[in-house]
Design a protein around this nucleic acid. Sequence first.
DNA 1: TCCTAATAACTGATCAGTCGGTTATTAGCG
DNA 2: CGCTAATAACCGACTGATCAGTTATTAGGA
Lengths: 208, 208
Amino acid sequence: MLPPGEPKWRRRAADRPKEIIAAALEVFSEHGFTRARLDDIARAAGVSKGALYLYFETKQDLFKAVVQDAIEPRLLKIRTGAGTEIPFDEAARLGVGVLVSAIQSNPRIGGVLKLIVAESRNLPELALIWHQTVITPLLSLISDIIRRGQRSGEVRSGDPELFAMGLLGPLVLGLLWRETFEPIGADPLPLETLASQHLDTVLKGMKA
Amino acid sequence: MLPPGEPKWRRRAADRPKEIIAAALEVFSEHGFTRARLDDIARAAGVSKGALYLYFETKQDLFKAVVQDAIEPRLLKIRTGAGTEIPFDEAARLGVGVLVSAIQSNPRIGGVLKLIVAESRNLPELALIWHQTVITPLLSLISDIIRRGQRSGEVRSGDPELFAMGLLGPLVLGLLWRETFEPIGADPLPLETLASQHLDTVLKGMKA
DNA sequence: TCCTAATAACTGATCAGTCGGTTATTAGCG
DNA sequence: CGCTAATAACCGACTGATCAGTTATTAGGA
């Protein structure tokens, strides 16, 4: 009756959390927070629902872990190379380049972005974390570069934060476009082309 | 026991649908599709839940009505003044101006935008409608203006659709910013200033 | 008096979170 | 080394709450 061969499951406490987070990212970014079922996440992680609760207190807890795991490591890379004293144009191109390649290499980042927007009302605490740890640093990094360009006379006057949003906006739009309309059958968006053409435009338009 | 004075309710079949749609917009844009409760919508509309089903078949049906009601009338206004043969700069400023004032005069439009992004996976049919009736016409309108500018030699070469996204991206970002971060306590975003500064930048950057 | 807008109590399905029980793994002991 | 006791990882059936959608009934209006 009981075949000895393979055990029904294995104890792998060290690997479970990251496996669960990966599975949860998949399910959350497909269905959103509320419609994502813990049973589905558990199945995708190859684990029972009960096991989720060994590693995460609640569904929200798991969701937070997913978002933080997706974001925090990438932020470090962007910060690198901020303090350097290269010409404005170059710095801007470099920064956007890092952003675009981060996006390209991790296609899930669009899903995470969508999640933040979609669930900010339900999980304000999470929106706060995201705002403090990602948005604010990123924006101030870019607007610092712009400010520097203004002081050196390379960039015309204007609110640096708004310039930064003018720079990033189309990237955000592109990401959300992919998440929203490509699954519906819309033409795929050449994000890299968009980024480079827009960068050319904005840099030219910001010249003093 | 029963005081004669005011009746407990009145029959107002003509007014109910729009009242329900207004209430539903409120609740949907605060909680998203799934977490919005029909009981809450009904209460906000001053009506019982059962009454909703006299006017809408399902929750999705109601949701579709909300989105279409919010969008379609505004699209007409934007289309107006498209065919005119004014200089490129002027046309672009006019178009963006109309967009911004539409946004300002109807603060709920950001909520609708968020809903589309958030629920596109759950309600692909809706994303399709939105894509066909709003996004595509709007984008092609703007890129037509740009194409015209290119033909007349006012605008440098480049993909007109991507130029259009470069123009609109920051507006979308601004709208979502409001929806996502202002409720959390972030600084309010001066959307109009953003739009005008960005327009200046992009127009300058697109010059031939 | 009759039609129907509208109500309010109800049903059934779904799902987050719990808990008693089970199995893999490790440590202790001879 | 083997054998066994102890432990921690894991399972999955269950519970209680929530809500979309239904229906029996009431009451407004012509």
